[in-house]
Design a protein around this nucleic acid. Structure first.
Lengths: 149, 149
DNA sequence: GGGCTAATTGAAAAACGTTTTCAGTTGGGA
DNA sequence: TCCCAACTGAAAACGTTTTTCAATTAGCCC
């Protein structure tokens, strides 16, 4: 079942805050700013885009702190790095557990989905190549409902 | 059916050469050097690794030219950018047509495979999200036969 | 084979994105 | 309120990629 990232329980700023606190991280102003940016977006954003937006909430926010906060959020699983043709330098909100992204080629909006049954394919490929397959990585590209109009 | 990249017809230096010529590219010494490196490897290599190896064949080869040649080769479909956890800065030999890579987490060796039947999944995801899905991108991670020993 | 010309080259410099360093600041428990 | 480890931003360091430019070279034409 697919779910809108921006409205999933885990990218809600409150639950993110408590999740950080639970892991012993302090809830500082710049972190709050980055959290808000991530929670409010439906697009994948580069660190510097996130920095620009975070400054609207807390103008002193430094780019360095954005990098550090993204690292923490990725560790918590709240964001995921998104890999695109032009590089792998943006982050998208993510909910818990195994999930993949669909990215709109037009507006970069991102939606998560979980239906990825690759078991059959993995078996075949293992048989053909002799590799022991331990993980996979899948992204879909397309056009979102908004941009189709 | 899976195929060893290094032995596929398209990463063979000769056919690569004629392919370049067909597109109006000149066959210069540094390009030959990069071609040989790509044709001979079974791993995914970063531009600077490729540069280091290319210098064995033509010592004057500049790193800039490696970047430029990789761009040309990617355009011809002879190499593909490989995306890994630590970044997306390496290239793997690629044969023609739609294919994906399996990358060994231990030695970075790369094998291609073509069995990717995602049609069913794509249909489901389209229904659930409203996105019109136009492409996908899949990489498998695992341990190659050599490293399993 | 020799010469011509556009494509290609390497070195240096610029431009990026990311990480490290460090002295000063701050969140949140005692 | 005080205290201290966690955290911060500015500056500098760093590695990768791109741009610039004068010199070189591949391959066509004669």
């Amino acid at each position: 079942m697919a779910s809108q990232s921006a409205s999933s329980p885990d990218s809600n700023p409150d639950s993110l805050s408590t999740q950080l606190a639970a892991r012993g991280y302090k809830l500082t102003r710049p972190r709050r700013a980055v959290l808000r940016v991530v929670a409010e977006t439906r697009e994948s954003l580069s660190p510097s885009e996130i920095h620009a937006r975070a400054k609207k909430f807390y103008p002193q926010t430094g780019l360095v702190t954005v990098y550090r906060t993204l690292e923490v959020l990725a560790e918590c699983g709240a964001v995921r790095k998104v890999h695109q043709a032009d590089g792998c330098h943006s982050y998208a909100p993510a909910s818990e557990g195994h999930a993949h992204h669909i990215i709109c080629e037009n507006c970069h909006s991102v939606v998560e989905f979980e239906d990825c049954d690759l078991a059959e394919m993995v078996k075949t490929v293992q048989r053909h190549t002799g590799y022991k397959i331990e993980g996979h990585w899948l992204e879909l590209f397309g056009v979102c409902p908004n941009c189709r109009r």
